[in-house]
Each structure stands twice: as C-alpha cells, then as structure tokens.
Amino acid sequence: MWKYIAKRILIALGTLFFILFVLFILLSFMPGSPFNQLTLTAEQIAVLEAKYGLDKPLMIRFFIYVKNMLQGDFGVSYNIIADYPVIDLIGAKFWISAKLGLTATVVGTVLGLFLGLVASIKHNTWLDTGTTFLSVLGVSLPGYVFALALSYFIGFKMNLLPIVYSTKHPVSSLILPVLSMSMGPMAQIARYTRTEMLDVLGSDYMLLARTKGLSNRILFIRHALKNGLTPVITVLGPMLVSLMSGSMVVEQIFSVPGMGSLLVSAVQTNDYNVVLGVSFLYSLMFIVSMLVVDLLYGVIDPRISVSGGKKE
C-alpha cells in the first residue's frame, strides 16, 4: 500500500513537472509582451523585459522558474499589480473561489444524494419522475441561468439575499452564488446515485441479505448505500476541483473576485507568472484529488485493490 502511494506521488510530481514545462512553452508562443503601454519605446520594453528576466533563453527561464518555485517563490506579477508576489495575489483570490466551490460541492452533493436516493427508493412513482425532471433540468441548463433567475427573484424581487458578493457579508452574499453553482453537481450526483442505487437494490446479494432477515435500515445503509456510493466518489474529485477553480460566468454575475477572473485578466495581459501560478495550482489540485479518489476506492470497496492483484 505505502509503496503504491509513494509510486503514485512520484508519478504525480512527474506529471506536474511536465504540465509546467508545456505551460511554459505555450506561454512563450502567446503574441505580444506583458508591456503593452502605447507610450513605451522599444528600448524601454527591452529594459523592462531584462528587469524581469524575460530576455533570457526559454530553457534558462524555465529552470530559473522551477528553482525559485521549489523555494516557494512563484515570481511577481507584471501587470495586475506590478511587482506584487504571485503567491500573495493568488492567495487573495483562491480562498474565495475555494470557499465558493467547496460549499457548492457540499450543497450539490447533499442535495444530489438526497434526490438520487429518493428516486431510487421510490422508483417508478411521481417522486422518481419529479427528481429525474429536476436532474435533467440541472444538467441541461447552464449555471448562469440559475444565477440570473435566483438573482432576480430571490435577490431583487423578494429582497431576501444580496445580489452581489461582498467581503463584508461573506456568508449571506455567498448563498446565491453557491446555489447557482451547486445545481449542476446536484443533478449529476442525483443521476449517478439513482442509477447505481437501482442497480444495487436489484442485485442478487441484496435479495440474499433480505431473505436472511436483515432489517431495511441495515440493508440500506450497510449494503446498498456503501456499494452505491463508489461511482459518486469517482466524479466528486474532479467536480470539486472544477468548482473550486472558479466559474467565470457565476463570478461575473455575482461579482465574486475569484480565480476565474484572475486567470482571464492574467491571460489577457500576458502576465506570465500569474498564468503559470494559477495553472500550476489547478493542475496540483486535480492531480491530488485524483490520487485521493483512487486511494478512497480501496477504503470504501475492498474488492478494489489499490496496490494491484497478486500474480497467480
């Protein structure tokens, strides 16, 4: 087990290094320079590029970046806030996106599990039809439709909640963005849960357990729920990362100063270090989440061996 974990971590580090290298190469192909002020002369642009080491060959810049990064230095911003450390800039935005994404994942998962379980238990009843309809709606409609609808009816018409995010009211002003962002995950989880639970509830081992006289409660929690949830965990990791990395549209509608808008600003202004920093963080989050999900399989379902089967 530990050998497997070590191996996976090594692979993850290698993947991260490779992603960083590809990002570095791609950024060098972006048109223009971070210094776009119309009044700057070619000589001044050259001086600015020398100041930030952008005049050095690509590979040397890459190794300097990696060396500094390993010491916790992700460089400075060129444009968004000149000379401001990228790590601090990301830090200021990341926690808002992370809070929003994490809360949306929790709310979406809880609601999705509830709807999926109700649909599977009350299979072929109006409750099943109703929850399936909600799931289809959640999958089909993009998050910004919910965002606009919630904003207009709950925020504006009913005046119950703020329609824009405020750092002064971080909880109440986060409810509408969270609800908007949780609709997609809710629908996805509900559909997965319903399908898996119906499969498990109709399986032979459930019939056997029932005939052995187990109570419905034990039957459901110990046997059905545990087996039915494995596929949900598969989608949960990437979903969490996706939501935590920020939704551009929902952030725009509710004015959440998160990672989505930071990345777009950085790409548009050729703020290379910020683009690299944010992209690296996304990659790190995704790879870690996949690793955690893989390891969780073994905990939840002992039939899945994380360290591989023994050779016969």
Binding site: G155, F156, V164, S255
Partner: peptide
C-alpha cells in the same frame, strides 16, 4: 465603491437601494 461586474446586476442593485 462596490464592485458589480455585470451592468444588469448593477442596475438591480440601484433599484434595490443598495
């Protein structure tokens, strides 16, 4: 100064009294 990126949301905030 409050940041409201979307112009329609900004107008709603004005109508709301925010």
């Amino acid at each position: 100064f409050v940041q409201i990126q979307d112009s329609q949301q900004a107008l709603l905030a004005y109508q709301n009294g925010d």
